[in-house]
Amino acid sequence: MEGLSQGEVIYIIVLGSLGMFLFIAGFAVFISMYQKRMLQEQEKRRIIELDYQQQMIQSQIDSQETERKRIAADLHDSIGSLLWAAKLNIAYLGRLSNFNGEMKDSYLETMKILDQSIDSVKRISWELTPEAFHNTGLSSSIMELCSRLNGKGQVIVFKEKGNQLFWKDDRALMAFRIVQELLNNAVKHAKANSILVNLNWNSNRLLIEVQDDGIGFTLNDKIRNGVGWWNIMHRSKMIDAAIEVKQNHQQGSAIELTVPLSS
């Protein structure tokens, strides 16, 4: 390196190294700042997305509830009233005419069909929207649901422990819908002989257990991808409830729902 003094070479080396170091450090700092901002932005977007999804589910469930109320009211007020009117008219005809023989049998059969239809309308209407829910609360409604389903191919037992709370708000209705869906699943798919619904009240949470002695189900079962299970999962998410499936294949299943009593 002729022509350059030792001092100049040192200057070049020191300044060159310093420049490279500054460049690499600046580049690294910029990339890490960028990645940090990108992660923050992605997290923000994820939260917004989740929030949006939650709102969509909420509005879906709300509209489901509104629609159920409307159908229940229509069933009760329209078809129910018409059936009552038909029954009254036929009863009036029965009083006016002295039916005998085959005619009387037919008259009695018609009355029986009408009674069954009125009962069905009442049952469906109640299941769609338990009109007394907001008056009777969760415990009584679940008890009523169990007694309605009891004896129709399965024995359904309802048990309750702890200090019962008169719980009747929208969260309680969500919990009721979950129990209703779990019971429907047990009745329709589990081929169970007996079902036990257990409510355990604690100071700050309610433990609901639905047990059956049916065929049980695995985590990959179709039921878990169906609308019913979707409803259960989203409703439990909305009331901050934890759901646990305890399965014992061929020996039934037990589903535990832990609901915090204050949101």
Partner: peptide, 23 residues
């Protein structure tokens, strides 16, 4: 500072400038 005195010259400046140009 780089071009000051006997030890410094414009060569240092131009070498550093050329290194920057390469980068």
């Amino acid at each position: 500072y780089l071009t000051y005195g006997e030890t410094g010259s414009h060569k240092t400046m131009w070498i550093l400038h050329n290194l920057l140009n390469i980068v």
